[in-house]
Write a protein that binds this DNA or RNA. Sequence first.
DNA 1: TATGAATGAGAGTTCATTCAT
DNA 2: TATGAATGAACTCTCATTCAT
Lengths: 215, 215, 215, 215
Amino acid sequence: MHNLQELFDANLASQPLSDKQQAVLQASLTLFADQGFDRTTTKDIAQLAQVAEGTVYKQFKTKQDILNAILAPFAQDVIPQAANEFLGSLRDQKSLPFADFLRLAVKDRMTYALDNRRQIRILVPELLHNADLAKQLLAGVQENLTNQLAPLFGHYQTTGELVAWPATRIMRYIFSIVISYGVPAIMLGQPVDVDAATNEATEFLVRGLQPKKEE
Amino acid sequence: MHNLQELFDANLASQPLSDKQQAVLQASLTLFADQGFDRTTTKDIAQLAQVAEGTVYKQFKTKQDILNAILAPFAQDVIPQAANEFLGSLRDQKSLPFADFLRLAVKDRMTYALDNRRQIRILVPELLHNADLAKQLLAGVQENLTNQLAPLFGHYQTTGELVAWPATRIMRYIFSIVISYGVPAIMLGQPVDVDAATNEATEFLVRGLQPKKEE
Amino acid sequence: MHNLQELFDANLASQPLSDKQQAVLQASLTLFADQGFDRTTTKDIAQLAQVAEGTVYKQFKTKQDILNAILAPFAQDVIPQAANEFLGSLRDQKSLPFADFLRLAVKDRMTYALDNRRQIRILVPELLHNADLAKQLLAGVQENLTNQLAPLFGHYQTTGELVAWPATRIMRYIFSIVISYGVPAIMLGQPVDVDAATNEATEFLVRGLQPKKEE
Amino acid sequence: MHNLQELFDANLASQPLSDKQQAVLQASLTLFADQGFDRTTTKDIAQLAQVAEGTVYKQFKTKQDILNAILAPFAQDVIPQAANEFLGSLRDQKSLPFADFLRLAVKDRMTYALDNRRQIRILVPELLHNADLAKQLLAGVQENLTNQLAPLFGHYQTTGELVAWPATRIMRYIFSIVISYGVPAIMLGQPVDVDAATNEATEFLVRGLQPKKEE
DNA sequence: TATGAATGAGAGTTCATTCAT
DNA sequence: TATGAATGAACTCTCATTCAT
């Protein structure tokens, strides 16, 4: 399960949210992503969710709480969960050549990003205007990557398939290249050919991350 | 002149803007970047600019107009201008090895991004919630890069120093790697060692963009 | 039975009110007295009464109806009832010296006021913002006192123990002095030594209401 | 200047309040007194004051602030000021017989209460639901009376014109009798014949507060 | 009968914008 | 030109009341 949306839905199901409350969250997700949090009124949300405005406030005390309910899984559970899950499956395949591992990882993360376009559209502006959230998220990601990815990279560095750079640096490149292919979809809603993008991105990353002959 | 701020100032100077109007724009730039457009009130702007609220509306008919005055240079003139300027200087140095050219380009663009952190912080959320602006900007960048960079890349591809990929693809990689080094500064205001970052980024890009031996 | 609370409960018992409805009224009495009618929500009432919000509306069609159910006994039945009861017992003791009668009356009314602190706390603001209720109550009290107390005062005026003022004037002084000793309890919940207060109040009232030697 | 209204107005004049802001306060005073604070909407206030609703919030940040602006003078400055002023004038007339002093004091305070009916109507419900305000006010009054009235009473006790009770007890009787004559005006807006009421009240108080022959 | 989720009118408050000075 | 008091539409949020279960 790599889709934040699914985790999000699962999260909601774990709380006893009525159909109408679910509708409120779905409507909020859509509207916050399209228009931004500040440009979305609670009236808009109520209309799209087909409920009364008061209903919006039955589950969530404030409009900000709705945003939190949408973003909390990102900053707290969802990202690490997804990463663990993904990394768990990778660990069993250490025998894979680095290029194949990279292809899998790139495709996985690219799919993940595309599946959660709307959450990303909401998260990005929030990170820019909320330094606390930004630091919290960065710390979570940092810790997760350091603990989980460093060993994996270490393995491929030992086999001579991966350049001997710090895990953070390697991740920076993978992450930014993957994101760069997601931007048209996230920003403009344009469709992305995941397989083609994966191939292109992987091809470039493998070149850049392979040790040189003399290294 | 690679600093958008300078172009921006120059732009303003071309119009007859009083000192107070300049102060309004400076205050708006700061506040929009820090708190976001929607969370900045015209009262905030007036206070920071040390003018009366009515004065804000002497030059700009609406709050949105202030945003436009800040962002217009990006989407219309400033980016292409800067690119032209930069490219012009590069064209004279075609004899440079690709790695040196790349290092110059990376440092230039990284400095550029860092110098214009605040504008980027304003622009990004706006692009996410304003598809028109996004398309307009993308088109401008696209055209600029295609017309100006394609020949440059062609040159290095001819000399066998640059892999035979389309200009767009090459630019995507350069751009996303450069941006990845700017993120901590843009998002969190953390200082960046431009020289170290340039070296790291260039090292990786050169590896990834060099033709393989057998190519 | 001098406690309005008891009459109130008796009143309620005469109507077929379920335990839950009783709980609603008790909770309302407490909350209206502490926070005021307007600052008490039906949710507050439901929570304190340990019933669902809908249950509040089974017996009482509106929130205002609850207030009426609490205040009606005051304006209609309760005050006159209590007065009659009190006066009946006094009539049998006409032989009492005025000072002793006054002491009994003062203690009785002071106890009464203290026992019904909460109702008074609710009633006072309501009287200030509801001229009709105020007139209704005043008329009831006036009539009651005129009919019942005037003869009693007449008796003591005949015996030369009570100054020859109109019953209303005499009652005004008794009432306001009694109330003045109840204020700390009613307003601040501070305990009152009823016996000491009775003695003080009676001492002063007897001085003020005794005919002068030459009268 | 015994009218709280005048002190209040003076207070406002000391702040630079525009005509519209004054109108807002006047309208609030009227409406809070007539309907109660909670039953008065800011729309009501704006309409009566003939201003826009936003104007209500130019001087006062919240509706509660308007209430504070009306009540603050009572709890903080105005009551002590008025008392001092009154007491100062009395001190020069120590030679007055107690009965004449009492008549002056009663008339003064009765006029004061009647002139400030509306503030009292607002203050009373607020005191009942706001223990802090109640304590604050009580403390202020207590201190003021103790410091200023005790000596005055002491004087008349020395001359044998006033019973040897504590100042608090004496004040309690004066205050409650005066208030009792103000109630019809405060509660129902009925006119009061101040001179007649003063005579009645003074007559009773003098009887009750004169030392007995044998004392 | 009792529940509590749902309702929606209306409350307090904000803020971009206007305009008399 | 610059001011800032004034505006009023629109926002977030509350809460008395209803009604399907």
